[in-house]
């Protein structure tokens, strides 16, 4: 037995406003049938104006802390593409909203893979004995990033937050996390991007910092890259653990698009009915998608103590990451 990170709680929060496909069909040149057949999404939640990512994150984190029966942690890590502000990081704001005192807090930026990167970072802090407990949150307000008239992205993305609490433990116990696989390919940075607001545009054109301030994505290239990188990353993590795909009880893949998830289960050889999916109800919530899917699987009673869960994500960067988890016995 060696020291490792153990998942001990999960929480999720969705803002109350629901946007259905019919709502979008009234605003954009689209239809419920078009959206469903191409994405598998029927509704998504939207944060109200005035609600920031830290507000969603604090709600999910509070739920996770209650689930853990804890009122303090050593570190807060937030994975997000939509921080409250470009500077400073949002995690300290969340820690302050939760009344956690002067804890270590920082953001992790890896777009839709961010939660996996956050889990790996937290796991590393625990294994290195730098922390006993870490709150890892994935939270997004993509409504702030997607142009409302951008049909292809407006139908896909939703707002929300999910959180888990990790504590130190030992390999072999329920909730144990690992091994991990992480990777990136920066040559694909233009495939999923917001071009404005960074030092690059400032360097190119001083004074025109808000051009291209909205999210853009190259659907065709992203589809193939997402399937291939999640497949390869998941296989690497299974190899590290000396396990086969048929030993996995549940696949929890990044909820990018129902068709990407279907292609992923095909290429991994995992039956679709062993893939946890809530994309029809929440859309693509980027860094929040994996913890929200875990919270969904827990709440619906799908995830049972001892189940082997394979987590895999792909996102802008390009980035990807995977890990394994034996599901713990959690309060509901």
């Amino acid at each position: 037995m060696t020291r490792c990170a153990v998942l001990t709680a999960v929480g999720g929060y969705l803002p109350p406003t629901v946007v259905t496909n019919e709502d979008l069909a009234g605003q954009l040149d689209t239809s419920d049938e078009w959206i469903r057949t191409r994405t598998g999404i029927s509704r998504r939640h939207r944060a109200a104006p005035g609600t920031a990512t830290s507000d969603l994150a604090a709600e999910a984190a509070s739920q996770a802390m209650r689930c853990a029966g804890m009122d303090s942690v050593d570190v807060v890590i937030l994975a997000t593409t939509t921080p409250d502000r470009p500077c400073p990081a949002t995690a300290p704001t969340i820690a302050a909203k939760l009344g956690l005192g002067p804890v270590a807090a920082c953001d992790v930026s890896a777009v839709c893979s961010g939660f996996l990167y956050g889990l790996a970072t937290a796991s590393g802090l625990i294994v290195a004995d730098l922390a006993e407990t870490v709150l890892v949150i994935g939270a997004e307000t993509y409504s702030s990033l997607v142009h409302p008239d951008d049909r292809s992205n407006a139908v896909l993305f939703g707002d929300g937050a999910g959180a888990v609490v990790l504590r130190s433990g030992e390999t072999g116990e329920l909730g144990a996390l690992g091994p991990f696989d992480l990777g990136s390919d920066g040559s694909g940075r233009d495939l999923i991007t917001v071009r404005a607001g960074g030092s690059e545009q400032w360097a190119e054109e001083p004074g025109s910092r808000m051009r291209d301030a909205y999210f853009s994505m190259s659907g065709r290239e992203v589809f193939r890259n997402a399937v291939q990188h999640m497949n390869r990353s998941a296989r690497r993590v299974l190899d590290k653990a000396d396990l086969d795909a048929d030993q996995v009880d549940w696949l929890v893949g990044h909820q990018a698009n129902a068709r990407i998830l279907r292609s992923l289960t095909d290429s991994l050889g995992i039956p679709e009915e062993r893939s946890i999916s809530n994309i029809d109800l929440v859309g693509n919530t980027a860094a929040a998608s994996i913890p929200l899917a875990l919270e969904h699987g827990h709440r619906e009673g799908l995830l049972k103590p001892g189940d082997l869960v394979l987590l895999t994500a792909f996102g802008g960067g390009l980035t990807w990451g995977s890990t394994l988890l034996t599901w713990p016995a959690l309060a509901r």
Binding site: R38, R220, F223, S263, S267
Partner: peptide
């Protein structure tokens, strides 16, 4: 079959 379906179709043929 639109462009995204063609990507999915290509991946399925590969598998």
């Amino acid at each position: 079959l639109d462009s995204l379906f063609i990507v999915e179709f290509a991946l399925t043929l590969e598998d």
